[in-house]
């Protein structure tokens, strides 16, 4: 059983992550009254990009080439540590949440440095915004995870998420609900979605993540797109694993519930993107700090048993 689940958790992410992107796009298309691309479109895009050549800027160095490779590799490694709801991940140890944050941090730093390596003013702008928002998100994420650890009294992600069942929800609903709200904010910021960043905009001046990868093409772009899909999946697992407290002993059932929940999350994101506008850049910090404050409230509420 342990062997099955240890393959199930990363494998499901590897295969299904691009599907989340497809679901978001499909929901947005439907709400806008369009048919929308088929669900396999992201896979087709990836396959096409992998076969293409590349153009590298003469300004760039080895760091530019390291960016996409490292950011995808860290996302893949994080897939080994983050649990799929009640299904434990293959690698878990006390403090693994710090290691996951470390992996994300490495991937982000290399992406930022690769963007700055081009010397492009646009990419510098994107990198500047990325590090600003990332610096504010990190405390919020730590606070949310701290509240989960404090509620479940478990020191690793897999054991903490394993302990989030229906009984815990009925005992500590306010805390877990507030943490879920924080994680949703973190999810939207980290994945550069509306209301923080608009992944489909065509004006470079208003972008964050997309503008940082302007100079990447071909295989590199495929790596970046796939890595972004994986990040959508990984942070989604942190949120959905908390919100969907299905904890039967059967890993297939638990896993399926969380995957269904991830599809639901993708629909929610599509809905948010269809109904909300992007915030002004100056107002994004208030959103992130507000998200962090929710986790702080969760912690205080959790203190009063």
């Amino acid at each position: 059983m342990a062997l099955i689940s240890s393959i199930l958790v990363p494998a499901s992410g590897l295969v299904l992550a691009p599907l989340l992107v497809a679901v978001i796009n499909r929901v947005k298309a439907r709400i806008a009254g369009r048919q929308g691309p088929p669900l396999v479109q992201p896979y087709r895009d990836l396959a096409k990009l992998l076969g293409k050549g590349a153009v590298y800027s003469t300004t760039t160095t080895w760091l530019f080439r390291a960016g996409p490779v490292v950011s995808l590799a860290t996302a893949l490694a994080a897939l080994l540590i983050v649990p799929l709801g009640g299904v434990a991940a293959p690698v878990h140890f006390t403090g693994d949440l710090v290691a996951v944050a470390g992996l994300f941090g490495l991937g982000r730093f290399l992406t930022v440095v690769a963007a700055l390596d081009t010397g492009s003013p646009f990419e510098g702008m994107g990198a500047s915004r990325e590090v600003t928002f990332a610096a504010l998100v990190e405390p919020a994420l730590f606070l949310a995870l701290a509240s989960i650890v404090a509620t479940t009294r478990m020191g690793s992600l897999s054991s903490a998420y394993g302990a989030v069942d229906a009984a815990l929800w009925s005992a500590a609903a306010p805390t877990l609900g507030l943490v879920a709200a924080t994680l949703l904010v973190v999810y939207l910021v980290e994945n550069s979605r509306i209301p923080v960043d608009d992944p489909t905009t065509h004006l470079e001046l208003t972008m964050i993540h997309e503008v940082m990868v302007l100079d990447h093409s071909g295989v590199d772009l495929a790596f970046i797109e796939y890595g972004a899909a994986l990040k959508l999946w990984l942070l989604g697992m942190l949120l959905v694993g908390l919100v969907v407290p299905v904890r039967t002993a059967n890993p297939w059932l638990d896993g399926a519930a969380v995957i269904a929940g991830l599809a639901g999350l993708a629909m929610v994101v599509g809905l948010i993107e269809s109904t909300m506008a992007r915030l002004r850049m100056n107002n994004v910090p208030a959103l992130i700090v507000g998200g962090g404050v929710l986790a702080a409230v969760a912690f205080v509420v959790g203190l009063n048993p």
């Binding site: 076969g51 153009v55 003469t58 492009s120 071909g218």
Partner: peptide
């Protein structure tokens, strides 16, 4: 993969 499709060097994309 790139060995098959080829690699070019150009100035940085300035939009």
């Amino acid at each position: 993969l790139q060995a098959r499709a080829g690699v070019e060097r150009q100035a940085t994309w300035g939009c």
